[in-house]
């Protein structure tokens, strides 16, 4: 890896960001965390991220909207969906909208790391 991957974590559960940030940083990524969709999109419009990890169910702007925004504006960025409300339906919807992967909560940081590595290796769409 010639360059540090930039990762954004969006989840209204503060603890998710709090724990994922150090965990992912220790794996050599740059991580920024956001607690709501609106500020995440504001940040995305200014800064390029390689990977966006987002929760689905959030008040106001939700994960699906972030996914749509990313696919429409920065298609090279990969989006990984993490949700506690996982279902076949939701998974298919997310993938249909172009999510890179779909992970059900609860997950271990290790699971996420594997997916991030996979995303880093995958050719950008």
């Amino acid at each position: 890896m010639n360059q540090k991957l930039k990762i954004m974590v969006v989840d209204d559960e503060a603890i998710v960001g709090k724990r994922l940030k150090p965990s992912l940083e220790s794996s050599g990524y740059t991580v920024e965390t956001f607690g709501d969709g609106r500020s995440a999109i504001a940040r995305l419009s200014k800064e390029r991220f390689d990977i966006v990890i987002t929760d689905v169910r959030m008040d106001d702007v939700d994960g699906m909207q972030i996914l749509e925004y990313v696919r429409a504006n920065i298609p090279q960025t990969k989006v990984i969906i993490i949700t506690g409300y996982a279902s076949v339906d939701l998974a298919r919807r997310a993938l249909d909208k172009g999510a890179f992967d779909f992970i059900a909560k609860p997950f271990k940081p290790g699971d996420l790391r594997t997916v991030i590595e996979k995303a880093a290796r995958a050719p950008s769409a």
Partner: peptide, 21 residues
């Protein structure tokens, strides 16, 4: 059941972080 996944996820992430570090 779905709603529980959020606190469970928080617990799991925190516990694993604690374990790893």
């Amino acid at each position: 059941a779905h709603e529980l996944n959020n606190p469970l996820n928080n617990i799991l992430l925190t516990a694993v972080s604690l374990q790893e570090n």
